[in-house]
Design a protein around this nucleic acid. Structure first.
Lengths: 99, 99
DNA sequence: AAGATATATCGACTTTTCTCGATATGCCAA
DNA sequence: TTGGCATATCGAGAAAAGTCGATATATCTT
């Protein structure tokens, strides 16, 4: 876990917002109920909710994934993203003990 | 506690290093033994240890203070900085519960 | 195979951050 | 009150991040 990179990833309002939405996928993305929440939420849903362009949101999600805060699962033409709770636990610990 | 600003402050190797040094002031800054550690470590000591310029380090410390991660105490011509442990506890909590 | 859809990547431009040297401010000592 | 330190602030140039539109890639449907 590269501390600086993780903190950079968290240094953006929209990315924090996305992470927050992903805490309660059902509540935050009811539109996806039809397709289920098994692997998380797909890029398009997240993009719509942010109001930013597709490329920006795709980039944001890949940033969050690169540092390990979310996990991605490709299913057909969709990529589903979900939080990686272990990473958050680790980060919280890190702040308590190492930083 | 402005989350984005706190994470920005933590998104820098040198600033993380400084925070880490301040965890154990006596061990990290033995040169300051003569003057005591009551209010923390003064800018000059920190600057020397980073190898960066005085202005950069002063700026870094004021950034850390602005977001609440350190506390500053002016004594004569010196400004002493020390960690604000409450802020770290709060941040750790924040990550566990809100982010 | 072709078209449609979802996502990723690229190139460009703007804004922010990093870092410095120079200068200002505040405080102390002679 | 003048000079000398310690720290803060300013202005500038370089590097990184934010964000977009355009395009590429992958997959699905027909």
């Amino acid at each position: 876990m590269d501390q600086v990179e993780v903190f950079k990833a968290l240094s953006n309002k929209t990315r924090l917002q996305i992470l927050n939405w992903l805490k309660q996928p059902e509540a935050s993305f009811p539109e996806q109920a039809v397709y289920g929440y098994a692997h998380g939420i797909c890029v398009g849903q997240i993009q719509q909710k942010t109001g930013l362009t597709q490329s920006t949101v795709s980039e944001y999600l890949s940033t969050l994934q690169r540092v390990g805060l979310v996990k991605a699962t490709r299913v057909g033409q969709w990529t589903y993203y979900q939080r990686n709770e272990e990473a958050f636990a680790e980060l919280s610990q890190l702040i308590q003990s190492e930083i």
